[in-house]
Design a protein around this nucleic acid. Sequence first.
RNA 1: GCCACCUUAGCUCAGUUGGCUAGAGCGCCGCUUUCGUAAAGCGGAGGUCUGGGGUUCGACUCCCCAAGGUGGCUCCA
Length: 612
Amino acid sequence: MPEQSALQAMRHSMAHILATAIQHLWPEAKFGVGPVVENGFYYDVDLGETKISEEDFARIEAEMQKVIAHDDVFERFEKPIDEAIVWAKETKQPYKEELLNDLKRSGTTLAKELNSEELGTIADGKSKVENVSFYKNGDFVDLCRGPHVESTGKTGAFKLQKVGGAYWRGNDQNAQMQRIYGVAFATDRELQDHLAMLEQAKKRDHRKLGQELDLFVISDLVGPGLPIFTPRGTVLRNGLIKFSEELQQDRGYEAVWAPHMTRTELYKVSGHYDKYPERFDVSSVESDDTFMMKPMNCPHVTQIYASRPRSYRDLPLRYMETTTMYRDEKSGELHGLSRVRALTQDDSHAFVRHDQIEDEIRNIIGMVKQMYLTLDMPLSVDLSFRDDSDNYFGDPKLWQEAQKILERIAREEELDYRVEPGEAAFYGPKIDIYVSDALDRRWQCATVQLDFVMPERFQLEYVDEHGEKQRPAMIHKAILGSIERFLSVYIEHTAGRFPIWVAPEQIRVITVNQEEATVNFANGILGQAQKLHLRLGVDNSNESVGKKIRAAELAKVPYVIVAGDKEIKTKQVTPRIRKDMVVIDAPVSLGIEEFLKTVANEAKARILKTSL
RNA sequence: GCCACCUUAGCUCAGUUGGCUAGAGCGCCGCUUUCGUAAAGCGGAGGUCUGGGGUUCGACUCCCCAAGGUGGCUCCA
């Protein structure tokens, strides 16, 4: 057996052992599903009024150890489908009964592949499957496809991790079960390594670093999901935004601007109004009109296009805008900077002829690649396509054509992509670019969306070379996506060790004493740095040099220079360079002006490593 | 929004089974010191124990409600 599937079988067996323990402790337990997930497994259980908390883990783990010590064989057997349904009824396992009905009707239990209205309903007539397989270990029997390890003793090291609510079959209309997560590895060593890795990841949590490095604040008075950026955090934000805007300007995008609220009518015409219940409505005491905060930008920009007649010669028209929008996300969905109620996007909209679509998307992919390469951020790509449901507006033939174009570009641009049906926007298919945070959770940042629907709904037109009216296509894009979300990932990716060009404080001067000559010298360096637009801080506090060095290290300042009699005399400094930036590990002394100019050039070039 | 858990000083955390004036380290302020590449010394200020109800002679501690947070689920950039 290949190693990977052996590990999977072991983890899946752990899920059964967990269920066995739970059945021993709570005989009335009703079981859902218990699959393998990354690094471990979970099992969904319904214990009625009884709620499991992490305090119960020790007890459950002890029972699991007993099951393992018992070393019961995982015995596979089959039952005809109808007998299996009787079994589920008799053992009072209603969730298993639902799954069996789905198996009988459709031959699968995957909710995604099933007609949602039929899900779990009683199946009449002929069955799609004859027999279903069961696994038995000791006194626990479970409907299961397998495979398993030989016996409960042939498992590895495990630990229960967390418990959370989970809707039965992922549908929030259904009952909520308790999902118990565990991690499991072949050896105890691997388990310990994994747990240590999680501890490390906690240290780079952007919410923790945001507080430690003084980047942003979330105030209860302002409200949840509404982060405020400090001077240091704003340097980061603006640095990234500037980079994005330069990329876009270089490729023909022009800046535009729209107010942050609008008459709701705009969103009724666009079709968003009913699709986005999470809007913030704004009321006016003066007028009867209804307004809302903008939850996106595309409908606004269409009005620039529509404001005058357009010729085929005008296209493509490329508008960009870095702007904030507002979405009333449900409270439980907020998460640091990753999921907020006020999000700022480096958004753009290109209006193109159909024959210009492909070039424009390549233009955009070029920008995305350049951004993420410069930032040293690995990305993965989803092609978010439609499915057969009727959630989508527009001509299905245009959709087909659009999806083909996107997939061809993804292939030719050598993007590491996968196709995700059912993930498209209601107005068109997307190329979604994801990056991962410290815990390997994927977050969508950049996106390219092809849209034939908005131009239709807003009746956008241009006149072609024959004098005929034609409809342009719209291409929506964001490179950083939500700046807030991007920062959350970027802070974790760098662990707060920002490269020189976005470092909130690029250089710190540490004075050796508080004598007048020293202070004047340090302030002189500050003056020179300001002329070069460098962000330099002077630490003239009455503390030991060692302590001030330590403070600068903790603040993750890229360059630290000590200013004392030696420097005053020689007019040379020896920068202490943050370790992640060093290429050659040798201290260099150089003239103050030369040092500052080098740093200024590095900042301009957006480099990752120092050239000193 | 749903499920579980959490909330003590600016930050990180102690605080016996309900019982004296709620503690520590860091940070902050002041004084001493004037120091050479990851923590000098001394002193001081700082808390309606998230908020509101309740139980009790007495609540940081027990119960209820609310807010905020954390981890899941659902939804999403």
